[in-house]
Design a protein around this nucleic acid. Sequence first.
DNA 1: GTACTCCCAGACAACGTTGTCTCGGCTCTT
DNA 2: AAGAGCCGAGACAACGTTGTCTGGGAGTAC
Lengths: 363, 363
Amino acid sequence: MQAPRESAPNGERPGRTRPTMNDVARTAGVSLKTVSRVVNGEQTVNPELAAQVQSAIAALNYRHDIGASTLRRSDRRTDMIALLLEDVSNPFSSALHRVIEDEARARRLQVLTGSVDEDPERERELIRTFTMRRADGVIIAPVSSDHSYLTAELPPGTPVVFVDRPGQGFAADTVLATNVTGAAEATRHLLAHGHRSIAYLGDHYHISTAQHRYEGYVAALTEAGLQADPALVAHGLHTTALAETAVMSLFHRPAPPTALFSSQNLVTIGAVRALRRLGLHRAVALIGFDDFPLADLLEPAVTVVAQNPALMGRTAAAALFRRLDGHTGEPGTFWIPTDLIRRGSGELPPSPQLLHGRSDRPL
Amino acid sequence: MQAPRESAPNGERPGRTRPTMNDVARTAGVSLKTVSRVVNGEQTVNPELAAQVQSAIAALNYRHDIGASTLRRSDRRTDMIALLLEDVSNPFSSALHRVIEDEARARRLQVLTGSVDEDPERERELIRTFTMRRADGVIIAPVSSDHSYLTAELPPGTPVVFVDRPGQGFAADTVLATNVTGAAEATRHLLAHGHRSIAYLGDHYHISTAQHRYEGYVAALTEAGLQADPALVAHGLHTTALAETAVMSLFHRPAPPTALFSSQNLVTIGAVRALRRLGLHRAVALIGFDDFPLADLLEPAVTVVAQNPALMGRTAAAALFRRLDGHTGEPGTFWIPTDLIRRGSGELPPSPQLLHGRSDRPL
DNA sequence: GTACTCCCAGACAACGTTGTCTCGGCTCTT
DNA sequence: AAGAGCCGAGACAACGTTGTCTGGGAGTAC
């Protein structure tokens, strides 16, 4: 009474391959093209035929093949966008990722992500891969210092958006945090609390965000009639461990600072660790650039210059989508404001103990 | 109303569309098929011709079209794998993501990710999208309670790996943390420090990991001749805020617990916040399931049952790749051990203050 | 010198889909 | 009643690539 389930479910076809529009057309008794019209939601199909097609689709469990469709379409859209991030597992990157995923989903776009790890070579590799997969557009948190290669690498007209850091040598919409202003505000905040000896702890100087945050720091000091003391400035701290040792050594030399400004997440955390080890976490003021989870639960809670990754991501997505929709105006820069969140560590006054020149082992 | 805005600026072919193998063939003076052979690294091409092809590729800046290639190849591989995660921006998920990205990169596979957000409907949608894009295989951190739909949704033979939680109704390799054992170990640890009144704080009970961790908790209590007190058990805490209020109310009733076991990250953090607000963070012992960044910098530092997302990810990737390589053995389950990390909060003794029945407002 | 083998390169078709064109039938108009 | 206009549906080709097959030249053995 029942047909055997195992032997070649539908007639002639060898059952191994998945059904195509042709199979659907045959089952529904219509032409291939009519199936295509139904699948693409064209309104010019007789409802009765459309219903036949729909039930054939259901019966055969047909799935549209986006790859084949893309190949044939005249606009060649893949409905995939590429997203190059520093590292998908780092909180800032993954916050961006999530927001962009959500925006993309609303437009039925798939996001292709890749981690770049501060390696310009990897940035180029990923761009190449994504080009071979014909991504419709690209959002890049750049690490390379020269993006002129994009001109050759991307098909002309491919929308590009830089986020977090500016690209160089390639004109594109750019979404940036107000790094200079935010860093200056943090430094001014420390100055306002009486600090005159403020250390700067930063990532590699060649990273533009680090550079801009340093600029803000210097600018605020200059406003106050001070100069950046080279002994209190450390660049190149790209891991927690490096930051930690840098801070340790700051306090093992004469005239240690009374406050720290750190230009990045990992650095801030390294600074916290070091201050803990030194027993100075309630004595030395600290402001970090970029917020991080649990900053409010540390003791003292860490004052930060918070970025707004959600807004950055939404803005970047919007800029990309506008281009995908045909906008061809001049590329612009979108500044996303930062926000100084006072939590305690940035409001500590200068420690008398440190001010009175106890230069040797403070522990 | 308005005339077409742009009259196609390029009348002739070259310029707008990107070069194809045909263009390369013409430039190099060889056949299309020879270009294909060179691009695919086949060794049967005369080196001289191959060199001509290579320089034509360079001259035209040719990029292989992976989509077209996939369509034509007999194995139909897209070299893309799908990864369904709870939320790409959550630390556990993004740690998995990163590891799997790295493993995939080594095999030149692209990872397609999507966030599921505890929504079974979204899980199905994503599976459907990834199928339409012909992903070669799928790694799923499942939320749905019934995966029998995968049988119809995925082409037969598509490798699937479940990670973090088991799938149901679909046989596939599965990578799980030792949830029961880990939770039991944590509970035993609290018992060993003298606690007899240990609260359980968990996510929705329908989530299998939550369920297993609860089982472990109950099992350890039973071993010690105790019973889980329903008044000390809270399920359904899926946000930090919910966890926080649950803990607050625990301590605003008679006979509060002297220790807390929380079954998940966000819950642990909510518990920390609540204990802080109550001023009980040095009085009530706490162990959380799943490690989180900065747990060691809180005061007291938080004892956790650490999972090993890196190993889980690598194991899942390896299982998937083995199937992609043709392995067809019975699906297996891979258990990834957890690790109790003693940091302080889990080693606090029962607080005499709480033991002596100060049942009213403890603040 | 012939016959056989081997191997490289090209011709051709096909993957699953959509753009274009055509055709037949219907409606509308006078 | 007949021509114009419209519209829905099918035939066909093509997107960029690779699998298969064929042809011809070089190499080898007799």
